[in-house]
Nucleic acid binder design. Structure first.
Length: 305
DNA sequence: CTAGGGGTAAAT
DNA sequence: ATTTACCCCTAG
């Protein structure tokens, strides 16, 4: 009954994402009828699209609507040993329990929902980390330098500076960066001494999989996110590939926004993140369009018939 | 038609 | 055993 299985090809996923960008998430029928995508998606139904989008969303942020109410005390108590916790915190290997990426910043006394951590949006965060790491400045790098690096490596939104400031402040607040006299450095990550641990951590299974001794200097910290990989690669991409990646970033930003709208009450940070992500993605798209007009146009409406 | 809950089974 | 893809059903 299930179905003979027919894995989604990357082309189909790309088409779906492109369709969502073009028509918005939820306009499955519209996407399906769009001659642009029907060529690839003609085997899929609108419901398939919906389901697939659901699956992808689940994978992207760890908690789609499907298995949200999960994550509880699987293991009866059994306080996580310090070693394990430390490892898990720093490695962040799997896509599942990334909960600690954003452990509730300061203030906000009303943290009722411990699972509200959106891990899908790591773009700017990762960029900042990468910048600091790559710059290798002893004592850390200051905001201007970080901004310069990022702007050099990538396209930056117009109000990028503002976003960066907010992000730096936030990252410092939650202990992932350490600020010393205007300079930011990567927090020791391995020691969560700074963190409040009364924020219970849902690490129950002792399966911290990958982490057979890793270099703590080379950040494997957040590299796991797909976006990160794309951003890292986008520099050397062909315009077409880059455009596709940017388009995808837009789609994900959209998803993030949607989430933030739901969770806006408890997660002010998530909202800010989503905004940042969107701004970033939009700017990315625009810049790409501006620089590679013809090619992108080709990608956008490649005269079907 | 869509969102979303729920389910089965193939793949891994 | 978990993940992934597909199907079904219902409310709106």
């Amino acid at each position: 009954m299930g179905a003979p299985k027919q894995k989604w090809t990357p082309e189909e996923e790309a088409a779906l994402k492109a369709g969502v960008i073009k028509h918005g998430a939820g306009k499955w029928r519209t996407i399906l009828k769009d001659p642009e995508f029907s060529g690839v998606l003609y085997l899929r139904s609108n419901v398939d699209l919906k389901d697939k989008w659901r699956n992808m969303s689940v994978m992207a942020n760890g908690w789609g609507s499907r298995d949200k109410a999960r994550l509880a005390v699987k293991r009866t108590s059994s306080i996580p040993k310090q070693e394990e916790s430390a490892m898990a915190l720093s490695v962040v290997a799997s896509d599942e329990e990334i909960v600690d990426v954003k452990p509730m910043a300061t203030s906000s006394a009303t943290m009722q929902i411990p699972t509200s951590t959106k891990r899908s949006i790591v773009r700017l965060d990762s960029l900042i980390i990468e910048a600091i790491t790559s710059l290798k400045e002893p004592g850390g790098s200051n905001k201007t330098t970080i901004a310069a690096y990022i702007e050099e490596q990538y396209w930056a939104p117009l109000d990028f500076k503002r976003l960066l400031s907010a992000k730096l402040k936030y990252l410092t607040a939650c202990g992932r960066l350490i600020k010393v006299k205007r300079r930011y450095r990567i927090a020791p990550a391995l020691s969560f001494s700074e963190r409040r641990r009364n924020h219970f951590m849902p690490f129950s299974e002792g399966r911290q999989r990958v982490s057979p001794r890793f270099d703590r200097d080379d950040f494997n910290i957040l590299t796991k996110s797909q976006i990160d990989l794309e951003l890292a690669r986008i520099r050397t991409m062909t315009p077409q590939e880059a455009a596709a990646a940017a388009a995808r970033a837009v789609a994900e930003a959209e998803a993030a926004i949607a989430e933030a709208e739901e969770a806006a009450r408890e997660a002010e940070v998530a909202e800010a993140d989503a905004e940042a992500a969107q701004a970033f993605a939009e700017a990315a798209l625009k810049t790409l369009k501006g620089r590679n007009n013809q090619k992108v146009v080709e990608l956008e409406h490649k005269s079907g018939a």
